[in-house]
Design a protein around this nucleic acid. Structure first.
Length: 294
DNA sequence: GTCCAGGCCAGAC
DNA sequence: GTCTGGCCTGGA
């Protein structure tokens, strides 16, 4: 990968086929990116504000080399070779179509705690409402980091802060609805864990899944999302209504089967990169409304 | 006004 | 174990 420092100090990643901001931030894995008028995207993570812009086949990051190497390289999963994953997943015409449609998707390595809370909020909720709630939680409970293009950015609060939050406040000010107590309860439970999130990275997948599912508001689908988007395990295959519809329509001849069976089917079919396949299929299916009744 | 979303949970079989 | 209904909120 060729990384150049531009005249303004920002970084330029040359010739990135597997890095498309729209695809990365709109395939359902992250809720903390703001789309700007020039089609670039901005977030706040690691107490830093970052803007990402695509120019032709190049990507421009508003950061310096030090932060890039220490933080963003891992966040954007840049050590992973997506060309290799793609060729591994090119097993049929469906995947061929899904991969070419979402060729610029990458799996972000996000903060575990923020990811846990984000996907607890995602249950039976719309993307825009999820984004809005995350943003409000950061605003009311996080710390101010800075202002970028007129918008204020805040760090996502720590587990200690939300463990002490009043559920009614969360509901009233952050519009989380019935997920209010789940957020506080899950935070309290996490505080009781002996292991840090770093330690948990090495846990066997099934153990990690059981541990996550013991949290309030975390079931089969949400735990798979957390494992895929924050614990770097690309074999997790989260099944939501979209993936269920896509799989039933494109692989099961329209037959309706349970969520669990779709999950087993997906893991079996796509193996160690099932989670990446899920993202290609999700983006492909959702953008093209595959299986949605008219 | 009515409907229900990128699931979870409790309660009933 | 598998299935069902209810859940905040707000946009269609």
């Amino acid at each position: 990968m060729i990384v150049e420092t531009k005249e303004d100090g920002f970084l330029l990643l040359k010739d990135q086929d597997s890095f498309d901001p729209k695809m990365i931030f709109e395939c359902g894995q992250a809720f903390n990116w703001t789309k700007e008028e020039d089609e670039s995207y901005t977030t706040c993570a690691f107490s830093k504000i970052l803007n990402v812009k695509k120019e032709g086949k190049d990507i421009i990051l508003s950061t310096n080399r030090e932060d890039f190497e220490n933080l963003w390289m891992d966040y954007f999963d840049l050590q992973t070779n997506y060309e290799k994953i793609k060729s591994n997943l090119l097993i049929d015409e469906t995947m061929d179509a899904a991969i070419s449609y979402g060729h610029g998707i990458r799996i972000l390595n996000q903060d575990p705690y923020e990811t846990i809370i984000s996907f607890i909020i995602s249950a039976n909720n719309r993307i825009n409402q999820i984004k809005n709630s995350i943003s409000l939680i950061s605003k009311y409970y996080g710390t101010y980091i800075g202002t970028y293009r007129g918008k204020d950015y805040y760090n996502f609060p720590s587990v200690e802060v939300l463990a002490q939050a009043d559920p009614q406040d969360l509901r009233k000010y952050c519009k989380v609805g019935f997920r209010d107590t789940r957020i506080v309860e899950a935070s309290k439970e996490i505080l009781k864990w002996d292991s840090s999130f770093d330690d948990l990275m090495d846990l066997p997948r099934e153990e990690l899944k059981d541990l996550l599912m013991s949290l309030a508001g975390v079931g089969p689908k949400v735990s798979d999302c957390i494992i895929l988007f924050a614990f770097k395990d690309k074999s997790a295959f989260p099944v939501d209504v979209w993936i269920k519809r896509v799989m039933e329509n494109l692989y099961l001849d329209g037959e309706t089967i349970s969520q669990k069976k779709v999950a087993d089917f997906g893991r079996e079919k796509f193996g160690p990169y099932a989670g990446v396949a899920q993202q290609y299929l999700f983006y492909y299916g959702r953008e093209n409304a595959i299986g949605v009744q008219k």
